[in-house]
Each structure stands twice: as structure tokens, then as C-alpha cells.
Design a protein around this nucleic acid. Structure first.
Lengths: 332, 332
DNA sequence: GTGAAAGCGCTAACAT
DNA sequence: ATGTTAGCGCTTTCAC
């Protein structure tokens, strides 16, 4: 189909080794020859075959980015930072959207391994450590975990202190005078506890407020879920005075549902979210939330991964960033 | 590093061709032998090298997705549909974020060609037809254009009728009794006119309202820009009674800016957007907008591309979807 | 400064 | 039903 290095060689009257050298700007090619080769290549519309190169160099200049849900505005911010950093160093990135499905995550890991990516940035779908993940780790493909961390093993990660975030959010609500504070967040029955929930409980404990199970709602991460939960609370006549939602989408869903039910926020119910997605700051929403440095997390993830790939790093670099409470109207 | 087909062959006491056959479920391998091979492969943690396979098959099971800005919630919806469809058929997708930079788009096209992707879905950064694009077209890599179309050439595309959308938006504002209607949208001095602007002018003309240049603002696609534009209007004392913004992010920025300035929407100024991103429907925003069938566009794009790749299609399939006016409070 | 030859890990004829 | 051989398009020794 498209011209190969041999075609160019023929046209320029040199061996194809020389073409390779010339096109890769290596030493030992006379300027004159090089020019002739470059010209010939351009005329033929030669495009280097990165697949063939990858096969011999055992390096594809490609990484994989596995994340749960690209339609949650939190993730595009991170993905953008990663893609940007990767592109700047000549790397391409495979986008893998797991939809929070561990099985699908495992499939992606397998595919990425087959495609011989140079590294993977993984925002896990769950806290379960899949078999596939173990295989990848053994295979030697560097993985950087983003937005999540495990303390065991020799993993590199970039995350924020979720527990601290949960604590800050809850403390803020307590300080606003609330004592009936509900928590809604993703269910996670596996090894690692949900750190945000841990922070929530910690704050309650610190202020002498008993943590009640009926105030804790496990759910998924969608806006509609937040909306539905507040409706459920109403129908059960169990509407708390304040809610800490483990992500902004849930929180915005709660606000939406509340307003539809004629409840005022924060008048009837105070809401705090988590993430600080761009829409949280809209004047119409004004969501108090725990801010994550999204861009920085993206940049750090890719930089660390590339460091590992280039061998500048041991395969373990752990970074935990500080969450920040951003106070807006939804809680005051 | 990782085991190859030859290693497996040695372990299973067969030739490596047989291993290839067995692992690819081809005919002509005794069940017994196959089982032995599969077992050996599993024990050695063999992972097929898709790079090597790609080299011989001239097929990578990989596509490229080039889009302008993944942080604009319009695009993740489309990207999700595409990624989903691709994954279902065993394809991986490269995410390429151009940030509306045609030069960067050209770079991506080149990289994707080098990586020998089987096809490309392109949401163009501009209406300019780059040299790189011509090269790709010639090279035979199938391209499906999404959210944008050109009538010349033999291109496949999936888009909505932007002109019709612009018309619907503007007509709606006219019907609400407005006659001073501003347009804000991306600047596009190139070949193809901005169809949404064309629709805007068409509607004005139809209702006998003169189109005034000073009511037309060219800008980028960011929320902050909408915010800034309304401020600029105020300081020039040129605030129109209604604004048609060519995308929702701009529109939401306008609403945000207006509220900050103490203007009520739609009381002082009516706003209509374009895209119908998920946040447009929030009770706090209630943005009247032109809805694009995002998920459908994503699905169609990938299906058409795969059809072309599989050879079920000639390399030209054009789909133009209907935009739909969604009336909410920002305009009434 | 340039060329010849080997080989990356796989698939696809062509044998047997 | 299995093995042999020849590449895919490139980089990388090792010669000259």
C-alpha cells in the first residue's frame, strides 16, 4: 500500500539501511545523501511504519489510560492533562472507559498488554485487585495508579488524601451547625475501605456525633442517582438536614432533586460534594465541595509514568495531594 | 521479556505454526494438541504480541479519535459512544485532543498514520483542509468526519444540520418577541461558512429583521468567553435583549456573567445555546438549546467507520441528523 | 560513509 | 493434523 523504506532506498539509489539512518537523523550519513533520501521519501509520501519499528525496538511510544467514566467532568480534566503531557513527548494514548466494570477493566488490561503499550495509567473501577492486574504487574509494564492508591505492594500512584477530604467536608457541615448529616457514595465492599466515608465517620466521632447506618447510602456515581436518592429520602420522610455526597455529580443530582421537591438548598438541606468539577462553581449551583487538583494529578501521573518508562525512576513513586475545602452557597 | 509463540511451542512440543493456529482457534488442530498448547501458554503467561501480528496482517484493530476538546461535555458523550462501539468489536481507540489547534491536528494525523490505525474519526479543529489530511486521504486510511461535513470530495460523515439548528434557535427567539438578537460563536474565516451563523441570518431574514454585524461576535468555545463577552457588552452599553450562543458552554458562561452583573435571565436577556449538554437541563440552568443526538452520533460514526474497514461499505456514507429545539426557561 | 545480513514475533502459503 | 519456509517493514550489529 504505502511506500516502505525499501522503495525509498531504490529511488534514492542507496541501501535501505542508509535510508533508515538518514530518516532517523543518525550520524554517519553524508549531507548530500541524506538530502537526496529525504527528498525521495517526501516525493513518495513515505510514512514510517511505527508498527514495524515497535516490533524491533520493543517500544511503541504508546500508553494506555484506563478510567471509569469519561462523561463525568472530573475525568476529562485529568485525561486532558495526561494526553497533553503524553503528546508533548511523542506518546499516543489509548482511551479505555470501563464504566466502573471490573471485568471490562480486566479486558482492557489484557488488550493493552497485547498492544505492548509502554505503560498504563489506571484509575481503578473498583478496589478489587484483579488477576489480570497481577499478570500485568508481573509482565513488567509500568503502571501508575491515579485517583486511588493501595498501600501494599510496590505501586506508584498519584491521589489525594480522600480520608482528609471526607473529614474536611463533614467537619464543615458540623461547623455550620448540622448534626444530622447523611453520606452518599459509591459502594465498596472490597479490601480497601472507602476513605471518604472513613473521613466522614472520623469527623462525626471527633465532634461527638454518633454515626448512624441509616444515614449512609451506598450507590453509584451518577447525577440521576443523587436525584433519586433525595426522592427516596422524602418518601421515607427521612430527609437529613445535610448531605455529604462523595462526588459532585451526585451532589448536583441531590440539589436538582431537592429543588424539584420544593426544598431549598441550603435552607432545607445543605449539600457538600467532592471533586470540584467546573460546573460546581456556577452561580446557579454554588456547590460547596472538596477540590481535587485535577490538572496537576493528570500532569503528575503522566510525568511519573514517563519517568519510569525512561528509566529515570524506580518503579515506585507515591504522591498524595492535599484536598481543599471550597465553601460556596450550597452549605451556608 | 514476555514469552513468545516459540517458547510456547517448545514447551508444548509442537511447531510454532501450530501454536499460532491453536491460539487463534483455527481449524486443523487436534483437540488434544490444542489443549496442551493452551495449557502451556497459560502456564507461561503468554500474551499475544499484537504488534507483530499487526505487522503481518496489516491491520492493527486500532482507530484514532481526533476531537477538539474533551473537557467540553459535548465531546465525552460522543467519545463514549465511539469507544463503546469500538471496544465491542475488539478495537482500541487513540484519544487525540487538538485543543482546536489545526497544527496539532495535523501532527495527530501523521502519528495515527504512522501507527497504522485502521481508521480515523475526526471532529475537525477548523474547516481548513490541511495538507496532512490530503495525505491521509490518499494513503487510503478511512476517515469518518463527525459533527462536521464538507460537501466536496468523497468523504463519509455524521453531523447534524447546523444551519437548521441555527435557524430553529433564532426563530424561537423571534417568536418570543425579540428583535435584537446577538450571535456569538466560533470564528471561522475559512472555506466553509459557519452553518449555525448562516441559519441565524436566514431566520432573521425570513422575519424581516436586518442582520447587524455589531450583533455578531466571533470567539472561541469556552465558558469563560461567554462570561467575558456579556461583560464587554455591558461596558459598551450594547446589551442585546437576546443571545444565540453557538454552543452550550458559551451560553452557560453568558448566563453566569449576566447573573453576576445583576441581569436576570430571561427577564433582561434571553439565552439560547447549542448542543444540549447534560448540564443544560439542570433546574438551576434551564438552558433552551438545540439538542444534538450525541450518543447516536457517536454510535453512527463508529459503525460507519467499522463498516468501511470491514469492506461492507463504499468509502462514502453521509448522514445528517436533525437538530431539535429544546425549550427551557432561559428563553421564556 | 555505506551496505549486507540477521532478526523482532507473528501469519500464511505451501508442503507433507 | 502438523511442520517448513518466507516474509511483514523496520533497526541493529558487523563488515568494508
Amino acid at each position: 500500500m504505502s511506500a516502505t523504506i525499501k522503495d525509498v532506498a531504490k529511488k534514492a539509489n542507496v541501501s535501505y539501511t542508509t535510508v533508515s539512518r538518514a530518516l532517523n537523523n543518525k550520524y554517519g550519513v553524508k549531507k548530500e545523501t541524506r538530502d537526496r533520501i529525504v527528498k525521495a521519501a517526501a516525493e513518495m509520501g513515505y510514512t514510517c511504519n511505527a508498527i514495524a519499528r515497535g516490533l524491533v525496538k520493543k517500544k511503541t511510544n504508546t500508553i494506555g489510560l484506563i478510567l471509569p467514566d469519561i462523561t463525568n467532568p472530573f475525568f476529562p480534566e485529568i485525561a486532558m492533562g495526561i494526553e497533553d503531557g503524553a503528546h508533548a513527548k511523542g506518546y499516543s494514548v489509548f482511551l479505555c472507559n470501563t464504566n466502573y466494570d471490573p471485568e471490562r477493566e480486566a479486558q482492557y488490561l489484557k488488550h493493552l498488554a497485547e498492544k505492548r503499550v509502554d505503560g498504563i495509567i489506571l484509575v481503578p473501577a473498583s478496589n478489587e485487585r484483579s488477576l489480570e492486574l497481577n499478570k500485568i504487574s508481573e509482565s513488567g509494564i509500568p503502571i501508575v495508579y491515579a485517583c486511588s492508591y493501595y498501600l501494599e505492594g510496590d505501586r506508584s500512584y498519584v491521589a489525594i488524601d480522600d480520608e482528609r477530604g471526607g473529614f474536611l467536608a463533614t467537619r464543615h457541615l458540623v461547623e455550620q451547625g448540622y448534626s444530622t448529616i447523611a453520606y452518599i457514595g459509591a459502594k465498596d465492599e472490597t479490601v480497601k475501605k472507602d476513605e471518604r466515608l472513613v473521613g466522614y465517620k472520623q469527623a462525626l466521632k471527633k465532634f461527638g456525633i454518633p454515626a448512624r447506618d441509616r444515614l449512609i447510602y451506598y450507590c453509584d456515581h451518577k447525577m440521576k442517582t443523587g436525584h433519586d436518592i433525595i426522592n427516596k429520602m422524602i418518601s421515607k420522610k427521612e430527609v437529613p438536614r445535610a448531605i455529604f455526597a462523595a462526588n459532585d455529580l451526585l451532589a448536583i443530582g441531590v440539589i436538582q432533586g431537592a429543588k424539584e421537591l420544593g426544598l431549598s438548598v441550603p435552607g432545607d438541606i445543605a449539600v457538600v460534594g467532592f471533586d470540584d468539577i467546573p460546573f460546581a462553581s456556577l452561580p446557579e449551583i454554588q456547590l460547596t465541595t472538596i477540590s481535587q487538583p485535577k490538572q496537576k494529578m493528570g500532569e503528575l501521573s503522566i510525568n511519573i509514568l514517563l519517568d519510569i518508562i525512561f528509566g529515570n525512576e524506580q518503579n515506585t513513586r507515591r504522591t498524595i495531594l492535599e484536598p481543599e475545602l471550597v465553601i460556596r452557597k450550597s452549605s451556608c
